[in-house]
């Protein structure tokens, strides 16, 4: 693949988006399709319930309550764990028109970190919020 065709590919926003999605998994500061760092996105309408202190890194419960902006509905959700070896934990694509959405899941955390949830709405808007947790370690060093 020569340089000029690579440039053409990158100019296509859809292609750039999917390449970024793949590369994004390796970055600790995830980028959106518009190359905005997640921290710059508004957190409005994205409410997370995540334990401040996690019992175990093996199953940390996450609840994401999403409220779409007026006139729009939720299209997709991404759950990102920046400190995990594979940061993109979950990606949901919705085929409905739900304006409020509650996702519940359990995640495996490699280390104490903040989980990021990015919501994309039908009007193209993106919102993101994060919640920190500290993984408490057990004393029993059983390696079973």
């Amino acid at each position: 693949m020569n340089t000029s065709s690579t440039q053409l590919h990158l100019q296509d926003p859809k292609r750039r988006h999917s390449l970024l999605m793949a590369a994004g998994a390796w970055l600790s500061s995830q980028a959106t399709a518009k190359d905005t760092p997640l921290s710059a996105l508004s957190a409005e309408g994205v409410e997370l319930v995540f334990p401040r202190l996690a019992d175990t890194g093996n199953a940390v419960p996450l609840q994401a309550n999403i409220r779409a902006p007026q006139g729009a509905h939720l299209k997709s959700l991404r759950v990102i764990l920046p400190e995990n070896p594979n940061p993109l934990a979950l990606q949901l694509k919705l085929h409905g028109d739900m304006q409020s959405y509650q996702l519940n899941t359990r995640l495996r955390l490699y280390a104490s970190q903040s989980v990021w949830v990015v919501a994309t709405f039908s009007n193209g808007l993106e919102r993101a919020n994060s919640a920190p947790t500290v993984i408490t370690s057990t004393a029993c060093l059983d390696d079973s």
Partner: peptide, 14 residues
């Protein structure tokens, strides 16, 4: 029979 949700799961799922 109508697709309402598609999910891509990573290794962080329990």
């Amino acid at each position: 029979d109508r697709l309402i949700l598609e999910a891509d799961l990573g290794t962080a799922m329990t």
